[in-house]
Structures are given as C-alpha cells and as structure tokens.
Write a protein that binds this DNA or RNA. Structure first.
Length: 817
RNA sequence: GCGGGUAUGGCGGAAUUGGCAGACGCGCCGGACUUAGAAUCCGGUGUUUAACGACGUGAAGGUUCAAGUCCUUUUACCCGCACCA
C-alpha cells in the first residue's frame, strides 16, 4: 500500500539517479521554474509552503516529461527581522536559529519529494551570497543609483528600525503591527524612481495576473499634468506647484505648501511665525495612523505671505497644511475650491474665496451649486481662455506658461525611492566606510564581503547593533589608509531577494556575481509562483534590480519573471486564516507521515482552485486516501492480468480508449494552465472508466496487450501529480527507472474518430432530446433528421415551427410559436 | 472615496469560444458481498410535482434562436490604493 515508505524508497533512487539535475547541454530546451524561496523564520514548513511547492513541482515534472530541461531550484531568504526578534526573546543567536531552521526545512522539503535542484541552493545569509548583495550595492553606488540623504522616515518603535513605505500597512508596521512614527535620519536610498517609466511600461508585455500588474501600476502612480511657478509677492522667491488641472488655474484662490517644505521659513512673516512654528511641531509628532484617519479634519495656517498667480497675476494667500504631502509632486499645490473637494472643504473652513471657472458643457443649467465639482466642461471667468474645453485649456495654458518661463508639462510618479538602510543586526552590512578626510568611501570589491560579526549585542535600543561592535566599526580608509569607521546599518532583506533568481544558475561562482553569457541563456524565469502578498514589493524590486544589472552590462534580460502565478491561501477548517491563537493550524508533517506526500499534495491540488485556495477539509484528505486505494487496486489488477491472445479490439475497449484519449487532451491543457483540480478530476474519470471496463469484460476476453499499454500510459499521466506512487507503479508494471524520463502522453486522435455523434435538440432554448447523426452531416441533413424524429411531435403540442437553427456539430434549436 | 475581484446543489468546486448548468469529489439514500460490521464494488442524488412538466447560477432588467458566460442597474463579501493635487 502506498505510504511514506514508498516516498522514501523513490526519493533515494531519484537522488542517486540525479533526476533533478540540470544538463547544460540541453540549454536550448531549458525551462526555469521558480517558486518563491522560503523565509526560515518559523521552525517548520506550513501548509502554505506545501501549497506553493507541491503543485508547482507537479507542473515542473510535467514540463520535464514534455521534454524540457527543467531547472527548479530552492533556497532560503535567511536574513531578516523575525530571526533577530526571536533571538532577542530567547537569546539564541540568529545565525544558529536560522541554520537550524534551514536544516529542518530542508529535510521537510526533501520529504515532499519535490524535484528541487539542491546543487543550485542559495542561502542569503551565507558569505558567498551576501558578498554579492554587497557588490550589488556598490554597483548601484557607482552608477549613482544608491545615495544617502537625511529623510523623515517611517520608524517602527518596536522593531527599532526604519521601514520602507511598502512596509507600512495602514499606519502600522507590517511585521509587528506597532504604530509607525516618523524620525529624521540619514539613510541610504536606491533610486528606483529613475526607472518608474520603464517599470510601468514593461508590465504590458508580462504574462502576469492583471491584478498584480494593476497593483504595480497604482504603486508607480503615474500622473500627467503641468508645473506652474508662483512668485512670492515682495520677495525674490518662487515655488512650483504640480497640478493635473492647470485648466482651473484662474480659479486659484490660495496656495498650500507642505509644512516640511524648506521655503516655509523664508516666507513666513514675523506676525505669523509663532503660529507656523507651532503647526509644524504638531505635524512632526503626528503618527502615520492619525495621518491616515479618514474623517480627519483638514487644518492649516496662513504664512502671512502672498503668491502671484502666473496667469491672472492675482495675489493669493500662501498657507501651510498637512493635507499637502512634501514627498509628492513639488510639495506645493494651487487650491481651486470650486473644482476640488479637498480645497473646497478647506476654503469653507477658513473663509477663502471660491471662484468657478469651469461650466458643464453638456447641460443647459449652469448652476453654481457648491456641491457640484465640475470635472470637465468649458472655461469661464478665465480671461483669454474662456470657451476652451478642459482638455484644450490644459494644453493652451501650459504652453502659455512655458512661453513665459513660468511652467511646463510635467509627469509625476507616486513611487518613492527605496529606503534600504536598516538599524538591525541580522542583514547584509552596507559596504561603506566613512573617513574624516575622504568622506564616503565604498569598500573595494577585493575586500568583500564585509563580514557580519558573530559576537554582537543585538538587543535593540534605536542604534544599530553593529555600531556597538568596536572590531566591526573601526577600520582603515581604503583610500588614505587613515582611521575610519564603517557604516553600521544593514540592508533591507528585500535587497537580498531582489536578485536571487540570477544567482541560482551560477551559485558557486566566486569570481563574479554570475556569468553573464550563461545567465542570459538561463533567464528569464519561465514560470514564477508565489504568494500575492509580494505583488508590490518583492516583484517590483526584483524588476528594478534586473534593469539595473542590465544597464550595468551584466545581463541582457530586462524582465526577470516572464510568467507569474499567485497561488491562493489555504485557510483553517473554520474558514479563518490559520493562526496559533485560533488553534486552527494544520501541520503538514502529520499528514505526510501518516498518508504519504502524494496523498497530501493531491488533496491540496484537488480540493481547491489553485489561485483561490480555501478552507481545509479533513474529509477531503480521507477521500484522497480512499482514492489512492482505489487507484492502486485498479493498477495492480491490470498490471497482473494474465496475457490473453485476444487481438480484436472490442467496443468496450474502443469506448475506454475514446474516453481515455479525450481526457488526456484535457489533462494536458489543465496542467499547462495550472488547473490541477480539474486535471485530477479527469484522472478520476479515467479510473472510473477503467473500472467500468473491468466490470463489463471478462478477464479472458480482454485485449491485455492494449490494456497494459494503456495502463502504462495512464501511469505516466498520473506521474507529475503523484510522483512517488507513480514511480512505484511504473516499477511494478515492470519498467525501468524512471517514469520521469519518459514522454508525457498526448491525445492519440485515432481513438477519437467516430462515425456518429450525438447532439442535443432544443425547443425554444430548452433541451428536449438528443439525436444521433452521422459525423460531418450538412446542416440541411441534420435539420431533416431532427424534423423526422418521432419524438418531436410530442414536444410541439401542435405549435408550429418558425425557425430551425443548426449549429454544426454542437446543437439544434427549434423556435416554435 | 477610487480601482480590481468574487457570488453556481447540503458542502468543496466544474463548465477552455454565448451552445446539454452542476464534471470530479465529499455527504446522503439504495443495492451487491458478508452471520454481522468495516472495507470494497455498483446505482441514485439541483428544487418542485403523483406524473407530464415547470423552475433554477446573489438581486432586478436587457440583448440573443440560445446567457453562469455579453450589456445596464443593484446587493453582499474579499483584495489593492487612499488628502497623490
């Protein structure tokens, strides 16, 4: 009986036979199948890992049997906060706990029996990997894409570290859910904004879920508009505003500047100084969560200065308000209360003018209803621009401003540069040295890696743990040889995972990050599968870094992941997300141990639509155990049939082969599209058809040659779904190792040829009966057969036929009065 | 608020291009085997009706010979973004 012993037996054989190895000679048939590597924070693999890796392994084995040279590596995203937090709690060093977890997880992954190429393994916290993460940083520095600046950054007071914008979720720390605050710190950034347009544009050609593309599109947030320069009245100062509604510029009744903007101090008049300073202070201490509060009232203060509208030359008040973001656009906006809801609320509260400049073009009633924010229409109260449509005006007014050197067309992105500094221990040290004489000095490539020291006090106190290690901090300047200090921040772990897909195929290269010529043959990844939670961060960063490596001349690849799939989420039996506190966590190990890896994997593939997931079902597992018994009994019986000398192919056999080949066609389609549930349903249908055949035909009347051939084919069909089980059956049927070195069966059309087909007959769209017609009948012929059918009159009840519609080979519909 | 998605039997879920709704499985009912049970094998199982039939894919309309599928309106839930000028 199938179980874990059979798993172990074949896992060992596969190991010896090196079934997962990659033969470089077949590079022209390469298929790079990649699952997102695991994060060894928890001690064990959970159901989610299995749901990612199991079905994708089925897909990879299918590809192998299709003749592709499959490269399916696995590794560990080993740096990061959870290991460090665990260390802080327990005192166990992150290196030790991580290595132990990796060991456990490796053995679990091996128990899964997935066709992972372990020779290609990467572990991001090992020196031979993070050396190249550091090298990558230096490359970006060299290219001007890594820079340092003082920034008002997101700060997690619990993790004691900076967070990237993407790691702040609804004002809370993504990892620990503490309320995120702001802090001014000098930090390292990657200039991802330089690639905003290409990152947006490149999405078009990708075979990715539309939703994921949409998330990235929103995240990049391209906005096309204009920039307009407002001079400060009575001072030799000016500032730019960004607007998408330059057509409303004649309706500007005040302008607003973000409180953090540097110009604020210069324009604030003495009598408003106190008020402005107080307001700025208030903004500083506000938390992200307060800032995001939906019903938060808009606040602001007048600076005392006035700005000159570049079109109307009117003087308008300059305010500061925190509803204007310093980090978007220019940090200054022109306010048009008549046509912007936010400005309207603000203007009403502080008694500022409201001037309508757009009238609806399509309606006769030009009412000045204050609640109606006209989106588009015809310009009014706008001097020379009156009568233009909004679109015309956007163009004309910007051109007018451009001529006067007071504005231009402008594209703005919401994407911010990527903050990569982390004040934590467990990460790759940033390879930078600070020298009093030479300033910022990158560590020379020959000195890499900058090793992460083992003995460090990593308890958090807001300072980087590395700053407390004298032996780490103190060094000599590579430039002048004088005393110098190292950068003590480490890199965001997303940097580590942004390039791992390049390292797998050349993971032992000690000379270079990877061999360009080889990598250009191996990349891009043909199929990438992982959770949808990485839609914005990891997947965007990896695309960015790929483009950087390309521009640095290290690869020709522009997009790392050609085709992407997100698996769904497996919930607890109660329908809730699995969590220890809810007590609804399913442990894969127990099931694998009890029933074998294939039962567990088959259950996961059969029970849900792959991209949807759903709640765990204990009955579903039992059902799969039963199915394996049914399948094994069938195969064992068929394999051991005594050979008969029957040469004739009976109708029963024709029917069986017809069903079999028809379903093979569907299974190939299902696998190609990762529709595992329907693929398995079809395997069950084949099983049922075999049972039916077996019951209908006496053993001595069976064409055993045909049946045994078909069974061999069937075992190969099942192989990717239940690899251990199938290898065992392949062996019992007297075949050589391994079933995975055989070709995946495709439909044999000879068995599908039929002289007659059945098509349904509808009356007014409702199916009434089925007629058998000769294959390839002409429509007139079909109509005749149907109209002559004796059953028809009974359904007509005397009604007259108005029309007969014949859809060739599909259906007949009779329209009656 | 904006953007995207989902909704199908008692349950998980099928239906690839508008063409037999409910594949496959669970559960339930029945039969065979058995002293009996378990296991196994076979059959039935959308609702309603005695039956013919009628109705049926969140709700309401529409297009079509034909709609789960296309269009309009709408409800619930999920996800993403959220003062982005």
């Amino acid at each position: 009986m199938y179980g874990k012993d059979i798993d172990r037996k074949w896992q060992k054989v596969w190991d010896d036979e090196k079934i997962a190895s990659f033969n470089k000679k077949n590079i022209d048939k390469k298929y790079y199948c990649l699952e997102m590597f695991s994060y060894p924070s928890g001690a064990k693999l959970h159901v989610g890992h299995w749901y990612n890796y199991g079905p994708v392994d089925t897909f990879a084995r299918f590809k192998k049997m299709q003749g592709y040279e499959v490269f399916q590596p696995m590794g560990f995203d080993a740096f990061g906060l959870p290991a460090e937090n665990y260390a802080i709690k327990t005192g166990i060093h992150p290196y030790d706990s991580t290595m132990k977890n990796i060991e456990t997880m490796e053995s679990q992954l091996k128990a899964m029996g997935a066709m992972f190429n372990w020779d290609a393994e990467v572990v991001t916290c090992k020196e031979d990997y993070y050396k190249w993460t550091q090298w990558l940083f230096l490359k970006l520095y060299e290219m001007g894409l890594a820079y340092r600046k003082k920034a008002n950054v997101n700060w997690c007071p619990s993790c004691n570290t900076v967070l990237a914008n993407e790691q702040v979720v609804e004002g809370l720390c993504e990892r620990c859910s503490s309320v995120v605050t702001k802090k001014d710190l000098t930090q390292w950034f990657f200039k991802i904004t330089d690639y905003a347009e290409e990152l947006l544009d490149g999405l078009k050609e990708l075979d990715w879920p539309e939703k994921t593309k949409k998330i990235q599109t929103n995240w990049i947030g391209k906005s096309t508009g204009s920039i307009a320069t407002f001079k400060v009245d009575g001072k030799d100062l000016s500032f730019d505003v960004f607007t998408t509604r330059v057509d409303t510029i004649c309706g500007v009744s005040y302008v607003v500047i973000a409180p953090e903007h540097e110009i604020v101090d210069k324009i604030t008049t003495d009598e408003h100084k106190k008020e402005v300073e107080e307001y700025k202070e208030k903004c500083k201490i506000i938390t992200e969560i307060d800032r995001l509060a939906e019903d938060r009232e808009k606040t602001g203060v007048f600076t005392g200065s006035y700005a000159i509208n570049p079109v109307t030359l009117e003087k308008v008040q300059i305010w500061i308000a925190d509803y204007v973001l310093a980090t978007y656009g220019t940090g200054c906006v022109m306010a048009v209360p008549a046509h912007d809801e936010r400005d309207y609320i603000f203007a009403n509260k502080y008694n500022l003018d409201i001037k309508q400049v757009i009238a609806p073009s399509d309606s006769s009633n030009i009412n000045l209803d204050k609640e109606a924010y006209t989106e588009s229409g015809i310009l009014v109260n706008s001097g020379d621009f009156n009568g233009l449509t909004t679109d015309e005006a956007k163009k004309k007014i910007t051109e007018y401003l451009k001529e006067k050197k007071l504005g231009d067309f402008k594209v703005t992105y919401r994407l911010r540069d990527w903050l990569v500094s982390r004040q934590r221990y467990w990460g790759a040290p940033i390879p930078i040295i600070y020298c009093d004489k030479c300033g910022v000095v990158p560590v020379p490539e020959k000195d890499l890696p900058v090793k992460l020291p083992y003995n460090v006090e990593f308890k958090p106190d807001g300072k980087s743990p590395l700053a407390k290690s004298e032996e780490f901090v103190n060094t000599t300047c590579p430039h002048c040889g004088g005393k110098a200090k190292r950068e003590t921040d480490t890199l965001d772990t997303f940097v580590c995972s942004s390039w791992y897909q390049f390292r797998y195929p050349d993971n032992k290269n000690s000379e270079k990050i990877f061999d360009t010529e080889w990598i250009d043959k191996m990349l891009p990844v043909d199929k990438y599968v992982g959770g949808p939670e990485h839609a914005a961060m990891h997947l965007l960063y990896a695309r960015f870094i790929t483009k950087v490596l390309r521009d640095a001349g290290y690869t020709k690849v522009s997009e790392p992941f050609k085709s992407l799939v997100h698996q769904g989420l497996i919930l607890g039996p109660d329908g809730n997300k699995m969590s220890k506190s809810k007590g609804n966590v399913i442990s894969p190990d127990d099931y694998v141990d009890k029933y074998g890896s294939d039962v567990f994997r088959m259950y996961l593939m059969f029970g849900f639509s792959y991209v949807e997931g759903g709640p765990w079902s204990e009955e579903g597992v039992t059902a799969m155990v039963k199915y394996f018994g049914r399948l094994e009994r069938l195969l064992d019986k068929m394999i051991s049939l005594k050979d008969t000398n029957v040469d004739k192919i009976s109708n029963n056999e024709k029917e069986l082969l017809y069903i079999f080949n028809n379903l093979i066609k569907g299974i190939n389609y299902d696998l190609e599209h990762m529709q595992f549930n329907t693929g398995i349903a079809k395997i069950m249908e084949i099983t049922n058809a075999f049972y039916k055949y077996d019951q209908s035909v006496e053993d001595e009347n069976k064409n055993t040659k045909l049946i045994k051939d078909t069974i061999n084919k069937f075992i190969r069909i099942i192989a990717p779904f239940a690899p251990h089980f199938s290898e065992e059956m392949w062996n019992r049927a007297g075949n050589e190792v391994s079933v995975f070195n055989t070709e995946y069966p495709t439909c044999d059309n000879r068995w599908l040829e039929k002289d007659e087909i059945e098509i349904p007959v509808q009356i007014n769209g409702n199916v009434k009966f089925v007629v058998t017609i000769p294959k390839d009948s002409e429509n007139e012929q079909v109509e005749k057969i149907v109209l002559n059918d004796e059953r028809l009159a009974g359904y007509l009840n005397g009604r007259s036929i108005k029309k007969v519609i014949v859809v060739r080979g599909k259906i007949v519909n009779i329209v009656v009065a």
